[in-house]
Design a protein around this nucleic acid. Structure first.
Length: 805
DNA sequence: GGGCGTACACTTTTT
DNA sequence: GTGTACGCCC
């Protein structure tokens, strides 16, 4: 390389860094500009990982590999180089005017693939990119999606090469367990000796590791023999039913890319740049998948934090991130250690805990935010006392410090803790939402509608057919269904095919009318409608499902509302398709709803406290975090306390929990806790007791102990918060707040204004509803409100800011 | 074939 | 404490 070329490259690099890294720190800039070759970015919690991902994609699309390629344009002259060298003194905007003229080698957006774990993360990347590119077609062309959605896109296109037929179904863990139970029955394997759940888990772990039934190892444990038998039959049935489970979505895509050279070549050429988020949580199958997809150009960038690997129980292997530099000896490794989220006290606590783990990439988070407040530790008498304490702290901060309810998150190790917390919240009237407790798509009525849709979409789906063939009751009993299944097995056809020819079989003579009616009904709906929402509406009424729910009365009404909400989700899906000029299809809609989770729907806009597990909170941040149930046996979990590898994972989970907090962290634990109907005595978690330095902690002592009536479920009013004027205006709520003023409620002997039964009201968290019942209680009013979402809540007037509509 | 009563299970769960 | 799954009986 001659002198001129050297100067050219040097000047170019300096300029790019100056022009494009204004908002980035030096490590972040390096990660953005290192576009070529394998790159590992170790991004600590809150270190601006998404910023790097988004900027890097934008940089690649705008400038491609120009910057780091050693190519020097032919036209480079002494004058060009001088111009570049002089440009270093220019302002960034002046530079950006000059640069594109010199070096401009954009990468087409469809050559970029960004893989995340959650839809939320994918959506965030797309949203931030759309702010960079005015042209929506650019953002739409980038493949940014979850592992599963990316693979489904490939499978929908080439799945037929593996034997899948149009409209194949996606089985969730519930369907998977059902099918495994069916297989075990067929194989006469005793469910008492071998739990279907354990088999499901074993098969999932095998698929995570790309182990086919042929490669499945039988150990000295006799149960592995049975597991293998089930695995084989399960696979056979999945194929027959034209269905994949969640693990198949990855595994079958790997199989396709491995075995089909044409498909592999197509995608390997297509994806010039591959970016993988949350790499520490990838399993072996996902590791191989990313290897395959990036195999040709080798421009693979992985971002992650080995300290935040918390899905080992689902097959994630931290080794993928720990060994990346060994897998790719020519890789670049960049560490992001500056944290932009939390204060020093919080970070030091997190660092202290995670420091007890070995076998990790050494790194230490730092920040320039200052010490901040100490971590508040509170011992509660029991779970009710714990709930009251948390609510009291929230109410005080909302009244006195100008906090919003949405500034608070309550995190816990197990969903079970949400139960008692929810009771406390309902009584207090503080708006709250529980994430992940009962998932919308896990509701029976929704799953039934999905089953109907699956039958319409794919006639081979026997599992879903069996779910709804007699729901609502059509007098088609288990014996008939079994006979149909047997015929289908003998003929090698689907049950639906047998149903459509029911009169041909003497064995079905008695029920042939009913079976034919069923098929005729499905076929009629199929022929009359094409839009998912129309099919759903037709199914809902014509199958008699709606009538069945109506007959259920009160509870059925809620279910009807849920189905209607589900239908509106389909309408929204159709609208979205229209926007991008795509055809709305039933299988497309079914795919979308199969691959969506609760956290994806977490709406940061609503002003309500959010309750969720630590797992669900990963990737999120909150000004104030309460870490509840911090007792040995709960966190760390009893089951994991003996195993060092599991303890490391618990510790990483604690690290994730602590680093969610931006300004203030509360840790609470209860001396007595009733769980699953049993009361246990608890002591403070060893993570706090032994690992967080006491200098970072301030103990908040209860005023008296034990609190009066703490053991009973009695409601004790928290200190009445004084609401500031500004608070009301902040909420931008012009209409009257239907809450007695503090003065009024103190003067309880005069009673409080009580809304008549039947009044329509609005609640910040639960939406609109109707008052079912109103009862005076201790100078306050306890309302029972049925919300339009179907839930009925009991709320105290003083705290539930109900607004008359 | 449907309804009711009694066991039993119950970490975490991005998809 | 609560939800679900299965078995028994009508």
């Amino acid at each position: 390389m001659n002198q001129l070329e050297n100067r050219y490259l040097k000047a170019k690099r300096a300029l790019f860094i100056k022009a494009y890294s204004q908002k980035l720190n030096p490590e972040q800039s390096r990660a953005v500009f290192t576009t070529e070759g394998p790159l590992l970015v170790l991004a600590g919690a809150g270190s601006g990982k998404t910023t790097v991902l988004v900027n890097r994609i934008a940089f690649i699309i705008k400038y491609g590999d120009a910057y780091f390629s050693d190519a020097v344009p032919d036209f480079t002259t002494e004058a060009d180089v001088l111009a570049l060298e002089n440009a270093i003194n220019m302002t960034p905007s002046e530079i950006s005017q000059i640069l594109p003229e010199f070096i401009h080698r954009p990468c087409p957006p469809w050559q970029v693939l960004a893989i995340t774990f959650t839809n939320k993360a994918a959506r965030e990347i797309k949203e931030r990119l759309s702010r960079t590119f005015d042209d929506a077609t650019v953002t739409d062309a980038i493949w940014a999606g979850t592992f599963h959605s990316v693979c489904m896109r490939i499978l929908r296109k080439y799945g037929e090469r593996l034997g899948y037929r149009d409209g194949f179904s996606i089985y969730d863990t519930d369907d998977q367990k059902r099918l495994i139970t069916i297989c075990m029955k067929e194989l006469s394997i005793d469910e008492k000796r071998l739990a279907p759940k354990a088999v499901a888990n074993a098969i999932s772990r095998a698929k995570d590791r790309l182990i086919t039934p042929d490669e499945f190892e039988i150990t000295h444990d006799p149960r592995t023999r049975d597991i293998l038998k089930v695995y084989k039959l399960y696979e056979k049935k999945l194929m027959e039913y034209n269905a994949v489970d969640f693990d198949d979505i990855i595994m079958k895509t790997v199989e396709l890319l491995t075995c089909d050279a044409e498909v592999r070549e197509y995608y390997q050429s297509k994806f010039k740049y591959v970016l993988v988020d949350e790499y520490q949580d990838t399993n072996h199958a996902q590791f191989v998948l990313t290897e395959l997809l990036s195999g040709k150009h080798r421009n693979i960038m992985v971002v992650g934090d080995d300290d935040q690997s918390i899905y080992r129980f689902r097959g994630a292997t931290v080794e993928n991130i720990l060994n990346f530099d060994k897998t790719y000896p020519d890789s670049t490794v960049i560490k992001l250690e500056q944290n932009y989220r939390s204060t020093e006290n919080i970070l030091n606590a997190a660092n202290a805990v995670i420091g007890h783990n070995d076998d990790r990439h050494a790194k230490r988070l730092w920040c320039d935010k200052g010490e901040g407040e100490k971590i508040v530790l509170r011992e509660a008498y029991d779970q009710h006392d714990e709930g009251r304490y948390i609510i009291d702290k929230i109410n005080r901060a909302v009244s006195n410090e100008g906090r919003k309810y949405s500034d608070f998150a309550i995190l816990y190790r197990v969903n079970e803790l949400a139960r008692s917390l929810e009771t406390s919240f309902t009584k207090s009237g503080v708006p709250y939402r529980v994430l992940g407790a009962t998932r919308f798509y896990d509701r029976k009525e929704i799953k039934d509608v999905v089953a109907y849709l699956s039958v319409v979409s794919s006639p081979f789906d026997n599992l879903r057919l069996k779910r709804i063939i007699n729901e609502p009751k059509r007098k088609i009993g288990a014996a008939t269904v079994e006979a149909v299944e047997e015929i289908a097995n003998l003929e090698g056809t689907s049950m639906y095919s047998v149903l459509s020819r029911a009169y041909e079989y003497t064995a079905l003579a008695k029920s042939a009318d009913k079976l034919s009616d069923f098929v005729r009904m499905i076929e009629k709906i199929k022929s009359e409608h094409t839009l998912p929402s129309e099919i759903m509406s037709a199914l809902f009424t014509e199958t008699g499902y709606e009538a069945m729910l109506k007959a259920e009365g009160f509870e059925g009404e809620g279910k009807i509302d849920n189905v209607k909400e589900f239908i509106s989700a389909a309408i929204e899906y159709e609208k979205r398709c229209e926007e991008v000029d795509a055809l709305p299809t039933l299988s497309g809609f079914l795919e979308e709803i199969s691959l969506i989770s609760d956290v994806d729907k977490y709406d940061e806009g609503a002003d309500a406290v959010v309750l969720m597990t630590i797992h669900a909170a990963k990737g999120l941040e909150f000004p104030v975090v309460f870490l509840a149930g911090m007792e040995d046996g709960i966190f760390p979990s009893q089951q994991n306390m003996a195993d060092p590898a599991e303890m490391s994972e618990e510790r990483r989970l604690a690290y994730v929990a602590i680093t969610r907090a931006k300004e203030k962290l509360y840790i609470t634990y209860a001396k007595n806790r009733t769980m699953y109907g049993r009361t246990n005595y608890g002591i403070l978690s060893s993570f706090v007791r032994e690992e967080i330095p006491t200098t970072l902690i301030m103990r908040d002592m209860p005023r008296r102990e034990p609190p009066r009536s703490a053991a009973t479920n009695h409601y004790t009013r928290p200190t009445p918060p004084t609401y500031r004027r500004e608070y009301l205006s902040e909420l931008n709520r012009p209409s009257e707040i239907l809450r007695p003023t503090v003065q009024k409620s103190k003067a309880s002997s005069f009673g409080v204004e009580q809304l008549p039964v039947g009044t329509r009201v609005n609640h910040t968290a639960f939406g609109d509803g109707e008052i079912l019942n109103a009862k005076e209680m201790g100078g306050d009013v306890l309302y029972e409100v049925k919300f339009d979402t179907g839930v009925t809540k009991r709320l105290m007037a003083t705290f539930a800011k109900l607004r008359k509509i």
